[in-house]
Amino acid sequence: MATDDLATQLAPRAGANILAVEPFQGLTARVRFRPEGALDVFRAVHDDLGYDHLSMVGAIDWVDHREVFYIVWSDVTKQYLGLSADLTGDAPHIESATPVWPSANWHEREAWELVGVAFDHHPDMRHLLMPDDYAFHPLLRSFKLHEPEELEVKSRSV
């Protein structure tokens, strides 16, 4: 029921980019969308549905592809909504959500440095938690915890 309503509300501005609206444990629903139309979907969710608060952005390495997910909150419905996009290819990338939700800034920096997903047109893409010259993406499945990589970390420039 709720998922149908969401799909109808999203249709005018982002209908072509929505792949599915599915029920999700702990959330109102999860909207799966095409990464190419990310900004349209963000705008529709923010302006038309009223989800004005971005709670988090995360990425998952599924080995054959990567997934980016967003959790947004609306003060009107008092509900969380999930958004998710599958990124394929050797250099997975998606449009940054910062023009719509400024709070995406640090979340996207973290998702890039840990999972290696690039966010196009991000205003301030730098390392956040890892050292500036850290060359790995530690949350990739290929990064094994028990086989430490050889690395030499220079001190941070200040």
């Binding site: 444990q25 998952i60 969380y80």
Partner: peptide, 28 residues
Amino acid sequence: GTGFAAVEEPHGEAQAYVVNTGGEHPYR
């Protein structure tokens, strides 16, 4: 399944997102 929970922690809203693909460890 994938689980999501949000709790009003002393500092604000804390959330967890746990992906379970079967097995004893969470996938992410």
